[in-house]
């Protein structure tokens, strides 16, 4: 469904993303992890058109989308969320999602957009009350709204920049379950970005690990969690060996490997 070849993004002399290639198959959830600054969000921004790639090709359903304007990519079937939620405060929760439903699906009809908004809000578990204000939402609510907006655009591929950092354990599990439900019930393929490995590893089908803009590992969650380079990236070479081993063991336990 998505085939990325030799993706490069340079900011001046700095290579934020260096020659990354990967594929995403229809119906899978691909986890994209890596420490802060490893290029995850930059890859997302290129996939969704927010940033044009310096080099490389992005084939979505066989069509080249690298460098297209963001709204064309969104209308073309890719939905995205932002790491830090970016709601429109001057619109109600419902209006936020209707906007995405209207413009994200090619401006067909307002009635259809409202229907899409209702479905999306119900899916993420937000009220469909037309006038509820964004101001009443907490961190978890804002993330749900972000997800509802992306769903309302009618995506075939969802780029979920989740970063569950601000959430407690129960909320993290909830968010992870929601992504799985979105895939299972709506048949939407998902790329999920995260820098905390735990929750993500339980849900995803495959993981890709980035460090300093390069892909250092890719595969099944269990294999990647045991990968020496991944452990090194997450804990550093100077870390106490026993600490590293304990962390790896804990990671394996969490994902049941």
């Amino acid at each position: 469904m998505l085939a990325v070849e030799g993706l490069v993004k340079r900011f001046g002399g700095f290579r934020a993303v260096n020659n990354v290639s990967f594929r995403v198959e229809q119906g899978e959830i691909l986890g994209l992890i890596g420490p802060n600054g490893s290029g995850k969000s930059t890859i997302f921004n290129m996939l969704s058109g927010t940033l044009p790639p310096t080099e490389g090709s992005i084939l979505f359903d066989g069509r080249e989308i690298a460098g297209l304007a963001p709204h064309r990519i969104i209308v073309g079937g890719i939905g995205r969320t932002f790491q830090i939620p970016r709601p429109f405060h001057r619109l109600s929760i419902f209006e936020n999602v209707v906007l995405a439903g209207f413009y994200g699906q090619g401006r067909h009809s307002r009635a259809k957009a409202e229907e899409a908004a209702e479905h999306a809000l119900a899916m993420v578990g937000l009220p469909t009350d037309r006038h509820a204000s964004v101001e009443g939402l907490g961190a978890a609510g804002l993330k749900k709204l972000e997800l509802a907006k992306a769903l309302a655009t009618g995506p075939k591929l969802l780029l979920a920049d989740e970063s569950l950092g601000g959430l407690d354990e129960a909320e993290m599990d909830q968010a992870a379950d929601m992504l799985r439900r979105i895939r299972d019930e709506l048949g939407i393929t998902i790329i999920w970005v995260e820098h905390i490995m735990g929750v993500l590893m339980r849900v995803v089908d495959r993981v890709m690990v980035l460090d300093h803009g390069e892909k250092i590992a890719e595969g099944l969650p269990a294999d990647v969690a045991g990968d020496a380079r991944v452990i090194e990236v997450y804990l550093g070479t100077d870390a106490d060996a026993s600490l590293a081993a304990a962390a790896a063991a804990q990671a394996r336990r969490r994902i049941g490997a």
Partner: peptide, 24 residues
């Protein structure tokens, strides 16, 4: 019209508006 919604969104955050599919 939806133009108002789109313009309110744009005046707040152009990237987020584009991510909602708006041709800013």
């Amino acid at each position: 019209s939806m133009i108002r919604h789109a313009m309110e969104a744009i005046s707040e955050d152009e990237d987020a508006a584009a991510a909602a599919g708006v041709n800013v």
